[in-house]
Simulated assay, not measured.
Amino acid sequence: WRSNNILLVVLLCYPHLGNSSCRRIMYSHSVSVLLHIILSSISVLTVTLNLLVIISISHFKKLHTPTNFLLLSLAVSDFFVGVVKIFLIFLIDGCWFLGADWCVFYIALSFVSTAASIGTVVLISVDRYVAVCDPMHYQTKVTANRAKICIVLCWLCSTIFHTVMLKDNIEHPGGFDSCAGGCTFYLPPFAGVVDLLCSFIIPISVIVILYVRVFMVAVSQARAMRSHVAVVTLQNSLKVNRSELKAARVLGVVVVVFVLCLTPLYLVLLTIGLGVESASSYIFVVGLFFFNSLLNPVIYAFMYPWFRKCVKCVLSLQILKSGSSEANILEHLLKCCF
């Protein structure tokens, strides 16, 4: 319709349904192309880089350590976040054309992969805490089997918890969409509070407390080394700590980046719950959190020589050679890797 010489065009997701259809968000052609290119590039890079981490740690047996198993779990969750980004491309213009079942799958995958990612970061913090603060008992307390059990429990709890939270959505796909072409979900009021506690407040508190303790031990250790007060009987344990501290620094970067990307999302979600809502802010913080899944493998590439070597082996197809899984990928890199 035309008012005061201004032409307003309303486009619908399903024009033949009239007012029962959701409205399509209109962008200029250049903006639409730019958004598709950016989202597609980030999605492909996230999926590809995390897939390289998954293949590397899974294939090379020398990398089958408790800490690396935790990195593998984080890479798997980040991989699924990359898959979720692909679904987001379909929502750029505000219309969902894949059907109610795929909408529920997309939402459930988003919640489960996000929760598993948060749980894995907590496990990484616990792993570094034991390695740095109790190095003498690390080998007995943190074993590969225990790490695997913790990872399985983390994913199992994330799946069960969010299946219960999204129970109404799973039983009634599309039942909460206000218009045709939408993809929305419903959470009971108490579920939002529980999710805030279990997915943000408690995990972040645990992560901060553990890494503050790790930082304090690392500082005291550095001071002791500089002052040369370490006695001969402690030299071996100091060597262990020095190696573990290198891993703690790298994983500390991963944890700090994760917290910085996660915190704005929940702060905005909290303001929405209090009645303060900004669509642009919400889109930005969601994008920031999803972007974290791309940053993790980039951090590994810059700080882990073994990862760069593994990528070369994967891309050159050397992993297809018989016995390649037994290769000592850490050879000549032991001074750099944990």
Rank of each mutant, 00 (worst) to 15 (best):
N4E: 10
L7G: 07
L8V: 11
L8E: 08
V10C: 04
L11N: 12
C13E: 07
L35T: 05
H36N: 11
S41V: 04
I55E: 05
K62M: 08
F69A: 15
L72K: 07
D78A: 15
F79E: 01
V84L: 01
F87W: 04
I92C: 05
D101M: 08
F111W: 03
G119V: 02
T120S: 15
T120K: 10
V121K: 09
V122I: 08
D127T: 03
R128A: 05
Y129C: 08
V132Y: 00
V132S: 00
V132E: 00
V132M: 00
T140D: 09
T140F: 06
V142H: 07
N145P: 01
N145K: 13
L153T: 11
C154Y: 10
T159H: 04
I160Q: 11
T163S: 12
T163K: 14
M165I: 02
F176K: 05
F176T: 03
T184L: 15
L187C: 05
A191M: 10
A191E: 06
G192Q: 12
S199F: 04
I201Y: 13
Y211S: 14
V214M: 03
A218H: 06
L234P: 01
N236F: 09
N236G: 11
L238N: 07
R249V: 06
V253G: 04
V259S: 06
V259E: 02
V259I: 09
L260S: 08
C261I: 07
C261L: 15
Y266R: 14
L274A: 15
Y282C: 12
V286Y: 09
L288P: 02
L294G: 01
P297D: 10
P305R: 15
V311R: 02
C313Q: 13
Q318S: 14
K321P: 01
K335I: 04
